[in-house]
Computed example of a mutant assay.
Amino acid sequence: MVENNHSTDESGEFKRSLSHFDDRITSDGSSAWPVEPGRYRLVVSKACPWASRMLVVRRLLGLEDALSVGVTDPIQDEKSWRFTLDPGDIDPVLGIHYIAEAYHKREPDYDGGISVPAIVDIPSGELVTNDYLQMTLDLSTQWKRYHRKGAPDLYPEDLRPEMDAVIDRIFRQFNNGVYRAGFATSQVKYDRAYTDVFECLDWLEERLTGQRFLMGDTITEADIRLFATLVRFDPVYHGHFKCNRNKITEMPALWGYTRDLYQTPGFTDTVDFDHIKRHYYVVHSDINPTGIVPDGPDLSVFATAHGRERLGGRPFGDGTPPSAR
């Protein structure tokens, strides 16, 4: 989550900061950080949509043994993301209490935002990257040697030009749009963000009415990026971020699509509604000063029949679903 890595400008508009640490882990050794199984640790919060995308991609590609994961508490304190879910409040691999320690090991004078997902070099304890826009793409393209047998191609070369355009629109209007609405401090900026969110949802509803996934018959990177925001929309963004024209459950194609993905192996086990709801409603005290976490909505509906099989398609293409965990 990069909420503590943003600002609201004088006009009242939410501004998301660029990733300060944008190094890449590459297969050909062209970067300072070569791909090496077991060398790096991925740090996530299950509350965070950007981090959840990494968890889905890692599961679908079968990289669990190559890239370990540390999970932070969904509730941050003044030092940001902390490892209070682990014995002794210490990540068992990195030996630190806060992911901020890896940031400062890399750059002692760093005073910017502390965000997840983040990848840490285990031997040195230094942060490698917090570039949430690039990380999933690199798991698909740079870590191929360590993909499981039957791993799907989530970023096919022939689809990349169109997919990149779809991803860009979803990011600007929807992934980031809900934050622009939720953190806006002026009516004008909120109205603009609200309009963007629902223009994008209407476009997606139309696109997904006649095809099972965003790029056609198989799951791709674009679907994973969209899913992470969709699955949080009714429980959080609809009320908490004032994106309340309608719920996803009221949009037939998008609601069926959301359940289709949610029930797909590799997606379901990365979603933690408890972490999601507690993070947003407790941490955002400027939006929800009481810290009360709503009891609803009824989350059992995510497991109901979606009917998207009628559109055909093969979710994993020529690949296979990941094994149960």
Rank of each mutant, 00 (worst) to 15 (best):
K149H: 12
H284K: 07
V178C: 06
T26D: 02
L127Y: 06
V71C: 09
H306S: 04
P92Q: 07
V271M: 03
T84G: 13
A181K: 03
D318G: 14
D22E: 11
I276K: 02
M1K: 11
H306Y: 04
H6A: 15
S285F: 10
L226M: 07
L299A: 05
D202R: 11
Y262P: 01
S11C: 03
R16N: 11
D153K: 06
T229C: 11
P265S: 07
H306D: 11
L85G: 12
P74E: 06
R24Q: 14
A193I: 02
T185R: 15
P37I: 02
Y257N: 10
A324S: 15
T304C: 01
T229I: 08
I122W: 00
A253G: 06
P49V: 08
P322E: 07
Q134P: 01
L55A: 15
Y281P: 00
Y132A: 14
I292S: 13
H20C: 05
Y281N: 02
P117L: 11
G266K: 02
T84K: 10
F213V: 00
D260M: 15
Q173F: 13
I167F: 03
L60N: 07
A165T: 12
P152D: 08
F213M: 07
A184Q: 06
Y110P: 04
E205D: 11
V43H: 01
L208S: 04
V166H: 11
V293M: 03
G296V: 00
V271K: 02
M163S: 07
K79S: 11
V120A: 04
D272I: 01
D196W: 03
A324T: 13
R310Q: 12
R148K: 12
L154K: 09
R180D: 08
D191M: 06
D153I: 07
L137G: 14
L299H: 01
P34I: 03
E36R: 14
A47I: 02
V231C: 08
